[in-house]
Nucleic acid binder design. Structure first.
Lengths: 209, 209
DNA sequence: AGCCGATGTTATCCTTGTCAACATGACCCC
DNA sequence: GGGGTCATGTTGACAAGGATAACATCGGCT
C-alpha cells in the first residue's frame, strides 16, 4: 500500500523515485489512521515512503503543509461521497437527506482523518487550497438544499443559511462521535439512525416555518 | 498577573511558592488565547508562571495533562454559563433556547479555548475528569430538554436523543465559526442570529413530529 | 531542634522539525 | 552521444521542546 495504485493520477509522473508527493501523503494518511493522529511525524512519513528525512522538504514547505495535503485529499473524498449520495437519490428531499447522511458516514468511516480535518493542527487560513476544498464540500450540500427549495418552502436567499444549519447538525453529530463523547451510538447503525432522525427533524422544522 | 489573585481558591493553598498548579493553568490558558493555540509549550507556561522548566512536572504528569486541566476548567465555565442562561429564563422552551445560545456564545467569546476543548490535541479518553466535565455540560442541556418535554411533545426516553440533536446543532455551528469556515457571521450578532434561527427551526421540527 | 517529604532547580537526554551543503541522475540541446 | 542544468534526494548539523534524574530547599511535625 506504500506505492499507492495510480488511482486518480492526474499529474504526470514526476521524477525517478516515483511519485514521492503522493507516496508521502499516502504514508501520512496511513500513519494518521493507524493511531498517530495529529502527532504524525514527518520522519515517520518519510521512512514509510522509503526516503530520507529531508526529502519531504522538496515537495512540502513544512510538516504542516504535508498535513494540509492529506486533509485536502480528505475533503475531496468527502465531497465525492456527498455528490455520489446526492446523485443516487431520485427526489430532492431524499437527495438532501442522503447528502447529510453521507457526511456523517464519512466521519464514521474515517474518524482519525475527519478529526484532523476540523482540528487546529493545521491552520486552514494558511492554506487556501485547504479552505477551498472545505468550501467545495459545503457547496454540495448547498446545491442539494437549492434543489429542494420548493419542498422546503424556502427562498433562494435562505439557501445558504439552511445549508449551514444542515452542515452544523451533521458536523456536530460527527464531531461528537469521533471525539468519543457519544457513549451510545457505538455501532455504526446507531449513528446512522441518529443522523437520519436528526436530519428528518430539521427538515420538518424547515417545512413548518 | 504571574501570581494569580486567589480568585476561586477552593483547594487549600499548597506550599511556599503559592498555588503553582493554578498559576500554570492560568498561564497556559492565557498563552493559548494569545495565539499559541494547541502548540502551547510547557516551557512557556512555566516561564510565565515564574518557575523553572521542570517544576510543572511536580503537578502535572505531562504537557498533555496540563492541557487537560485547562480544558476541564473550560468545560466548567461552559457548564456554568449554560446553567446561568437556563436559570434566567422563566419558560421551559425559552430556557432551552437560551441554553443553546449560551453554548454558542461561549465558543464565540473564547474561540481558542473552545477549539482545544474539541480537538485531538488532548486525548479525552486518557483523562476521565475531562470526559466527566464534558458530560456535565451535556447534562445541562439534557435537563433543559427534560423541562421542556411537554412543550416539545416528546417522551422521557427521547430526551437524550433530542438533547443530542441540540448539542450537535450548536456544536456544529460553533465549530464552523471558530474554524473560520463561516466567512459570513463575522460580527458576533450575526452568529447570535444564526444560532437563534437554527435553534428555533429545530424546536419547530420537534414539535411537528 | 531535627527529621521528612513535598516542592522547585539544574543538568542532561531524546525526539523531531528544519536547513545547508553536497550528491545524483534525468532530460535537453548541440 | 556527451555535457550542462536543474529538479530531486542524502548526509550532517542545529535548535526547540518534552521528559527524567540528581540535587537543593523549605515548611511542618515530633
Amino acid at each position: 500500500m506504500t506505492p499507492p495504485p495510480n488511482a486518480t493520477r492526474t499529474t504526470k509522473p514526476p521524477y525517478h523515485h516515483g511519485d514521492l508527493p503522493r507516496a508521502l501523503v499516502a504514508a501520512a494518511t496511513r500513519l494518521i489512521e493507524d493511531g498517530a493522529g495529529a502527532q504524525v511525524t514527518l520522519r515517520a512519513a518519510a521512512e514509510a515512503a522509503g526516503v530520507s528525512i529531508a526529502a519531504p522538504y522538496r515537495h512540502f514547505e513544512s510538516r504542516e503543509a504535508l498535513l494540509a495535503a492529506v486533509l485536502i485529499e480528505g475533503f475531496h473524498e468527502l465531497t465525492q461521497r456527498m455528490e455520489d449520495a446526492r446523485a443516487a437519490a431520485t427526489e430532492p428531499l431524499a437527495a438532501l437527506a442522503a447528502t447529510g447522511l453521507a457526511y456523517v458516514r464519512f466521519a464514521a468511516d474515517r474518524p482519525a482523518l475527519y478529526r484532523l480535518m476540523f482540528s487546529p493542527a493545521c491552520d486552514k487560513a494558511a492554506f487556501p487550497e485547504l479552505m477551498d476544498a472545505g468550501h467545495a464540500s459545503l457547496a454540495v450540500l448547498q446545491d442539494a438544499v437549492r434543489d429542494a427549495r420548493r419542498q422546503l418552502g424556502i427562498t433562494e436567499e435562505a439557501v445558504a443559511r439552511v445549508a449551514l444549519s444542515g452542515w452544523s447538525l451533521t458536523h456536530g453529530l460527527a464531531s461528537l462521535y469521533v471525539d468519543g463523547l457519544l457513549a451510545d451510538a457505538r455501532p455504526a447503525e446507531a449513528l446512522d439512525a441518529l443522523a437520519q432522525g436528526m436530519i428528518a427533524t430539521l427538515i420538518a422544522g424547515l417545512r413548518a416555518s
